[in-house]
Design a protein around this nucleic acid. Structure first.
Lengths: 111, 111
DNA sequence: CAAGTATATAACAATATACTCATACATACA
DNA sequence: TGTATGTATGAGTATATTGTTATATACTTG
């Protein structure tokens, strides 16, 4: 909780981290990994993304440390590095839900 | 905390919300608003962003409901709709700090 | 009413990002 | 050893996003 102005470098890091979550495709991947380790093939099936596309997203998330990779034979298994990662998503989802409800409440009472 | 698969629409909403934080310029604005309401001119001074650029970011954040606007004369004052918005940033910052420290610890013990 | 000031917006150029197809690479297996 | 399979990556296209300049809009004040 820095009260002092954030350095441009830190700003870039934080922004990059947020952008990692700022793509529906990657959110889908995170969601699929909620249940635990998955191979790329399984992720293809679960997310509906193309294999190449998925693989790229995984590389990105790997570089950012969001997921870890384990290779076994010709398979590659990905896991969330830290289940806490999902908490962030849940916070935002919860927030949007609440905003949505508030919005609907307003509409109900007005219209 | 939806266990059921998120609808594409919700995924887009969540992703858009994350992307709002995924830009150093906007993080700077949020940081500047930490202290409370600010006019556009003050924000220009605080953030170092160009006026036009800043204004466009503010419109975006306004559309997403991150900030509210109050007009007084020829001035426009912006506030965070909800201080909780900053908690998200702080969570990510704190996380990055911790990762950084862990990283450094590893380097120290290894090298 | 004219001139000045604060903010918003249109139009553009530059850059980044995602997705796809084809292909490379690595491993397993017949 | 040759072939099939799983994953990663190069290259290209399409789209989105940022920042800038110039200008429009709204308000104030002399």
């Amino acid at each position: 909780m820095p009260r002092t102005p954030m350095s441009p470098e830190l700003l870039d890091l934080v922004a990059a981290r947020f952008r990692a979550f700022g793509e529906p495709a990657r959110l889908r991947i995170l969601e699929a990994l909620r249940g635990g380790e998955q191979s790329v093939g399984e992720l293809v099936a679960d997310t509906g993304l193309g294999q190449a596309n998925l693989s790229r997203h995984l590389q990105q998330m790997l570089a950012l440390g969001l997921v870890r990779r384990r290779k076994a034979g010709r398979y590659a298994y990905y896991v969330l590095t830290d289940p806490d990662v999902l908490r962030l998503c849940d916070v935002v989802c919860g927030r949007l839900d609440r905003e949505n409800q508030a919005q609907r409440a307003v509409l109900r009472s007005a219209g």
